[in-house]
Simulated assay, not measured.
Amino acid sequence: MSTTPSARTRTAVVVGNPKPASRTLSAATYVARELGGAEPDLVVDLATVGPGLLDFSDPAVTALAAEVAAADLVVVACPTYKATYTGLLKLFLDRFAPSYGTGLRGIAIPLMLGGGPVHALAPELTLRPVLTEIGATVPVRGHYVLDSAHDDPAAYADWLAAARPVVSTLLAARTGAPTP
């Protein structure tokens, strides 16, 4: 069940899967809907962005990064590659630098998918530290989902039950809305 923290909450999804319209995108959008209470305002499927990711002066990628930086809630999702996140996601995250005023300012949720349970700590060990370093608040543990269960709500249920009240309270405080 979704809750709506605030009509003013701006939610973004960033997906670092090299395949466009991936299972990772589906999973991230689901998590954003569940935590934000509505469809995300912005979905960045990095597989569709193209070579502009390699050019730090690319205006389209710079604009995407600015929109993500301004979001209240950002679900950052990636498949697990070599026990960590993809280079594609790293290229995008390198655009955020709090010391230059371009850090993430909202709440970030690390989400990773993988083929087996051996990498279940990857969201905490690899993705959480970089999100924190670039300015995000990461108030709940990252979530790892098996690829085979990416579309099964049960794969998210316990994690959402723990994460939703924390995220809702922080979003309400951030946006000035009453706590649900």
Rank of each mutant, 00 (worst) to 15 (best):
P110G: 15
A66V: 10
L160N: 00
D55Y: 11
G50Q: 08
D58Q: 07
G16F: 02
E39S: 14
V49H: 05
L42C: 03
C78Y: 04
D55I: 05
A149C: 03
P20E: 03
S57T: 14
L89R: 01
F92S: 00
L53I: 12
V140Y: 03
S22M: 07
T179A: 10
G106W: 12
P180L: 03
A65L: 09
T175W: 02
M112W: 02
T62C: 07
T48N: 04
L127N: 12
S26H: 06
A32F: 14
D158N: 11
V145R: 00
A122W: 00
F96D: 00
L146C: 03
V44F: 13
C78E: 11
G101M: 11
L125Q: 03
A38R: 15
V61Y: 01
V13Q: 07
L127E: 10
L88E: 05
T29C: 15
D55E: 09
L131N: 12
G106A: 08
A162L: 06
P139S: 03
G103K: 03
V74D: 03
V13K: 04
S168W: 01
S99A: 11
A38I: 05
S148V: 11
A65M: 07
V138E: 02
E133R: 12
T84C: 10
V76F: 08
R128D: 06
R95K: 03
F96T: 00
A70C: 07
H143C: 01
K90S: 09
E34D: 07
A47C: 10
P165I: 03
T126P: 01
P98D: 08
T48P: 02
D45N: 05
D58L: 11
K19E: 14
T9Y: 04
P98K: 04
T3I: 08
G142S: 04
A28F: 03
G87Y: 15
F96H: 00
P18R: 09
A157L: 15
V13I: 11
A161D: 14
L25Q: 13
P40G: 13
A161G: 12
V43G: 02
V167R: 00
D94K: 02
P139M: 00
T24Q: 10
V14E: 13
R128K: 13
V68S: 04
S57F: 10
L125V: 06
D151Y: 02
V15G: 06
V43L: 09
T102E: 02
L146A: 04
D72E: 14
V76E: 01
E39L: 13
L160P: 00
Y30W: 15
R105G: 13
Y30E: 12
T175L: 02
L35G: 04
L73D: 01
A120T: 10
A83R: 14
D147N: 09
G115P: 15
A60G: 05
D158S: 14
R128Y: 05
P117E: 10
P59C: 07
S99M: 06
D58R: 04
P79H: 06
C78T: 15
D94E: 07
L125S: 02
A28D: 03
V145I: 05
V43P: 12
G115T: 09
T3V: 12
A83Y: 15
V166L: 04
T126D: 13
R95M: 07
D41Q: 08
P79M: 11
G50I: 01
V68C: 09
A28G: 06
T169M: 06
A136C: 10
S22I: 05
A173P: 01
M112R: 09
A154H: 12
T132I: 10
T169C: 06
T86C: 08
T84W: 00
Y100A: 08
R141G: 00
V61F: 02
